[in-house]
Computed example of a mutant assay.
Amino acid sequence: MRFCANISTLFNDIPKLTERYIHVLQRKDYRFDAIECQNPYDISVNEWKELISNNKSLKWILINSLPLFNQTNEIPSFIEYQQLVLNRTLDYAKALNVNKVHLVMTDANNDSDRCKIIDLVYQAAEFFQPHRIMCLIEPLSIRLNYYLQSYSMAIDIVKSSKTDNLKIMLDSYHLQRLHGNLTERVKEMIPFVGHVQISQTPNRDCPVNEDGEVNHRYFLSKLIKPFYQDFIGLEYNDSSTASMTWLNEFSITD
């Protein structure tokens, strides 16, 4: 198994994302080959480019789009959505050479809103397809009215897509909070998953913390490993002093 450090949540005692990037390179207890990031927009494209040119050993796997709920209180037209979110997201995706973008959308007050948002998702996938970028949708358990709060609905959305670059973000934290029954839910999602992230429930801390609801050793070894060979995102909260040695038991050579 291969893991990428989410520099938006890990090492949260280090204030700046670029400093966290350097910290990943300098870790001694686990050698990371890749990272992902929710909010690369806090740093300018040029600053990222300069940092990457001097430190080329880390691969960027995933970034989030600019969250639509932070850009407007309305559900925009696609042209407006492209201007508010997609153009800048694409600029960063190209600069960082990522091939996965999590489409962070907005809240829905009714079924009409939800349908409009889903239509934006489909158009966004078409927008990114020529650039060979996979779009990911993720049910969220932490926003009360978020348009997507069901993995079953996420499957239906992906099934109905006219493009092949729309997939599901499988996050063990949200999956447990929204549904539980991880074994059956994962089996149901296997054909539709484009990326996996992990963290313990309910505190979004280290996945193998035993003071939590999910046995991630079972989750990773029995459910994820048989069908998913790409990087697994470590999207959990921890400081730079926390040990990463637990990752070695899930080495790619196992």
Rank of each mutant, 00 (worst) to 15 (best):
R2H: 11
R2V: 06
F3I: 07
I7M: 11
I7H: 00
L10C: 04
L10N: 10
N12A: 06
D13C: 09
P15E: 07
L17P: 05
T18A: 06
R20E: 10
Y21M: 00
I22V: 14
H23Y: 12
V24Y: 00
L25Q: 12
L25R: 03
Q26A: 09
Q26I: 05
R27H: 08
R27G: 15
K28Q: 15
K28P: 02
K28D: 15
Y30P: 06
D33L: 03
D33T: 10
D42P: 09
D42W: 02
E47C: 11
E47K: 09
W48T: 08
W48N: 08
I52H: 11
N54W: 02
N54I: 06
N55P: 08
K56I: 01
K56Y: 02
L58F: 14
K59P: 11
W60T: 13
I63H: 05
N64Q: 07
N64A: 07
S65V: 10
L66R: 14
F69W: 05
N70I: 00
P76N: 02
E80M: 08
Q82A: 01
Q82S: 13
L84C: 03
V85D: 01
L86H: 10
T89W: 01
L90R: 00
Y92G: 04
K94R: 12
N97P: 01
M105S: 12
T106K: 09
D107A: 15
N109R: 04
N109E: 15
D111H: 11
C115S: 15
C115Y: 01
C115A: 14
K116E: 07
I118Q: 07
L120Q: 07
L120H: 03
V121A: 07
Y122E: 07
F127Y: 15
Q129V: 01
Q129M: 11
P130E: 00
H131W: 04
R132V: 00
I133D: 15
L136W: 08
E138A: 06
P139A: 01
I142K: 10
I142G: 01
Y146E: 06
Y147P: 01
Q149P: 01
S150D: 07
M153F: 02
M153C: 13
D156V: 08
S160D: 07
K162E: 13
D164T: 10
L166G: 03
L166N: 04
K167L: 10
I168A: 06
M169E: 11
Y173V: 13
L175G: 11
Q176M: 13
N181I: 13
R185N: 14
V186D: 01
K187V: 03
E188H: 04
V193G: 08
G194H: 08
I198R: 04
I198N: 02
Q200V: 00
Q200G: 00
P202S: 10
N203P: 00
N209F: 10
G212F: 12
V214R: 05
N215T: 09
N215W: 05
H216W: 05
R217K: 08
F219A: 13
L220H: 03
S221V: 11
K222R: 05
I224Y: 01
I224R: 13
I224N: 14
K225S: 12
Y228V: 03
Y228M: 06
D230R: 09
E235G: 06
T241E: 01
T241F: 02
T241H: 09
L247Q: 11
N248M: 08
N248K: 08
T253F: 00
D254Q: 05
